[in-house]
Design a protein around this nucleic acid. Structure first.
Length: 417
DNA sequence: TCTGGGGTCCTAGGACCC
DNA sequence: TCTGGGGTCCTAGGACCC
């Protein structure tokens, strides 16, 4: 059987590297990568967490996702810079463009990760390991940031390989190297072993990837259900998934959620926040040519209690007003009156909004559809802030809440992946 | 004013049908 | 009438990834 050659390209400290490269190009003498620094959200609006840390920030014990307050406690001189998502989109695309020179079989896995199937590229570019070094060095010289590249015969091992030593490195992790290079790592470093799975395994003395690889699969299945077999196969380096040019052949759902700058304590404000979320979700649905058949509302209280409520709808819709009406109903049924910190709306069970389905819409809805379409067009030309509902005036709530909390035009990052 | 946002997939229980 | 059991759909919640 032909052995495939897969590469995984992972940008080192992506947001921070991109921020640093951008600042250097614009005359800033300081390279953020050389000092303890993080890209962090806005604390005033309760988005104050670490998004990415520099390598010098790591020895202080700073973790991605922890509060900026906590990070500063660990490292008093910590430099915190705000995120710039449109810059990151540009960097991500520039990286993709460069990688496409080496293979047409390429999958964008996230904003800062790509898989390349290099199998057929060997004829053109020769030895894969040498090619990986060339790619890595070209990215550094031409784009100004560093990457790690993992090279193996499947995606899982390529990804695990790119995680080995950082930054600016190429690692191979072929099946015959798994025992030597991967089995000694802590079990929580295996892809798909998150906090919950790691705890269950550690409680049973499975502490390394090697322990997991050599555990009894039936026993793992008892403890972890089907997930046990998945991680057991991964620990043994087995993965049959293919590099897919489009990671999402069909989009399954689109959602939007936000942590509000203040606790929401009344129903009317809750409904208004939902409207700002629905505006974004419904627009994205329409732009992508979908209708939704399932709406879900979720909330988190100021005590971090999380709950959600969803309802199937039997007439597929892409109408802002209809979706908002349903979201408010769900909210009213769900909310127990506790102060709310976070609200979300999600649309799933998407179907294509094709020409022939138009007949399903009633005359009344036709006017609403025309209205939505007109609004979409104005926003497309003049920006998302060009038109908004009067109820947002002086409400202190963004009229079109986007996921990043920044003033970002749609389509948002995730909708491009 | 300590704790983000956007996804996918899986599980489990209850309703309902035959 | 000492009470099955398979199958599907709906819903809520949890786990994982970036």
């Amino acid at each position: 059987m032909l052995q495939r050659i897969i590469m995984h390209v992972d940008v080192n400290s992506a947001y921070l590297s991109w921020e640093a490269a951008h600042r250097l190009q614009h005359g800033d003498p300081l390279d953020l990568r050389t000092v303890p620094s993080v890209v962090g959200g806005n604390e005033q609006t309760r988005h104050g967490i670490v998004l990415t840390k520099s390598i010098p920030a790591k020895p202080f014990g700073i973790q991605t996702g922890e509060t900026l307050h906590s990070a500063r406690t660990k490292c008093p001189g910590l430099l915190v810079v705000p995120p710039n998502y449109s810059l990151y989109m540009q960097c991500s695309q520039a990286l993709g463009d460069l990688l496409r020179e080496y293979s047409s079989l390429i999958e964008q896995y996230s904003v800062d990760e790509y898989f390349l199937d290099f199998t057929d590229s060997k004829k053109l570019f020769g030895d894969p390991i040498q090619a990986a070094y060339n790619i890595k060095n070209r990215i550094r010289e031409e784009l100004g940031f560093t990457v790690n590249i993992g090279v193996s015969s499947n995606k899982l091992l390529a990804k695990m390989g790119s995680e080995l030593q950082k930054p600016d490195r190429v690692h191979t992790l072929f099946p015959e190297e798994v025992e030597k290079k991967m089995w000694s790592l802590p079990v929580e470093e295996l892809f798909m072993v998150g906090r919950a799975t790691a705890k269950k395994l550690q409680d049973r003395s499975v502490r390394t990837i090697g322990h997991l690889a050599n555990a009894d699969p039936d026993w793992l299945k008892l403890i972890l259900k089907s997930h046990g077999l998945l991680v057991w196969n991964y620990a043994n380096g087995r993965d049959l998934s293919l590099v897919r040019i489009n990671r999402h052949p069909v989009v399954k759902g689109m959602g939007n959620s936000t942590t509000t700058a203040f606790d929401v304590e009344d129903r009317e404000t809750g409904h208004l926040v939902l409207l700002s979320l629905v505006e974004t979700v419904a627009t994205r649905i329409r732009v992508a040519g979908y209708c939704t058949q399932l709406i879900s509302v979720s909330l988190r209280t100021n005590e971090f209690q999380h709950c959600s409520h969803q309802r199937k709808i039997y007439t597929a819709t892409d109408c802002t007003k209809t979706i908002h009406h349903l979201a408010c109903e769900l909210f009213d049924e769900l909310w127990q009156g506790h102060p709310i910190r976070h609200l979300g709306v999600s649309a799933s069970e998407l179907c294509r909004n094709d020409f022939f389905q138009m007949a399903l819409f009633e005359e009344l809805n036709e006017k609403q559809r025309a209205f939505d379409k007109a609004i979409d067009n104005i926003r497309k030309i003049y920006g998302s802030g060009a038109v908004y509902r009067a109820s947002f005036l002086q409400s202190g709530i963004n009229s079109m809440s986007g996921g990043t909390g920044e003033e970002i035009e749609y389509p948002v990052m995730s909708s491009l992946l």
